[in-house]
């Protein structure tokens, strides 16, 4: 089958899947399917119905609906202030999304204020939260960098997140690394470096680990 037909066929399948998911009430999966089929607007509407603010706000920004995005981010922040779980990472993400929405809406001063507030929160909270939350906070900064096309923030966010997760949260570290790789695919050197890191961080069998430990011991012994 020609490639173009295959793609059409695939997209049609995604569209059907999206409708079925929505019918069954699985809105997140439905939105994912719409996104896979390339229908951002439908995905956006579905996520709006599901109330998934974390995903809707960046999508609204991408769709250039900046005012709606800013309003939603404000509502998100208000609700977060009532939730008993201190969702530091969500709070920071909400502020950063608000900053991005305001930035694109040309309200630069307010955007700068929201961004600075988020950065302050990020630095303050990170001294008190667990590495896992710290990692998520930095990833939120990276997501902001993606919205604003700021490679420095993307790198800073992900590098800090990877450092925060460390070997104790290897699964999260590998997931974050995967996302990082997707975002910086144009940067060949960084991609190369990240792939090397991924290879080193891939979980090994316990036997391999033991062999490595023994090797290390031998090397130190002989050095």
């Amino acid at each position: 089958m020609p490639k173009i037909t295959l793609n059409l066929f695939k997209n049609e399948l995604w569209r059907r899947a999206a409708r079925h998911f929505a019918k069954a009430g699985h809105l997140t999966e439905s939105a994912d399917a719409w996104l896979a089929a390339g229908h951002n607007k439908q995905a956006l509407n579905t996520l709006l119905k599901a109330g998934d603010r974390a995903r809707v706000t960046p999508l609204l920004i991408r769709e250039k609906r900046y005012k709606e995005a800013a309003d939603l981010a404000r509502l998100w922040l208000e609700e977060l202030s009532l939730t008993p779980k201190r969702r530091a990472e969500e709070e920071i993400a909400a502020r950063l999304n608000l900053a991005a929405a305001l930035h694109f809406d040309r309200q630069r001063d307010q955007a700068q204020a929201a961004y600075e507030h988020a950065r302050e929160n990020l630095i303050q909270l990170n001294s008190t939260v667990t590495p896992l939350t710290e990692g998520k906070n930095w990833e939120a900064l990276a997501a902001y960098g993606v919205l604003l096309k700021r490679p420095d923030l993307i790198r800073l966010g992900y590098e800090k997140a990877l450092a925060a997760y460390g070997p104790s949260f290897n699964l999260q570290r590998l997931r974050s690394l995967g996302e990082y790789l997707e975002k910086v695919e144009d940067d060949l050197l960084l991609t190369h470096d990240l792939k090397e890191r991924r290879a080193a961080w891939q979980p090994q069998s316990s036997l391999k680990r033991e062999r490595e430990r023994l090797w290390q011991a031998l090397s130190e012994f002989t050095a």
């Binding site: 490679p151 420095d152 790198r155 590098e159 910086v184 940067d187 060949l188 050197l189 960084l190 470096d193």
Partner: peptide, 10 residues
């Protein structure tokens, strides 16, 4: 530092 890794750093 972190903000200038990869190709930019090199």
């Amino acid at each position: 530092g972190f903000e200038i890794t990869g190709s930019s750093n090199h």
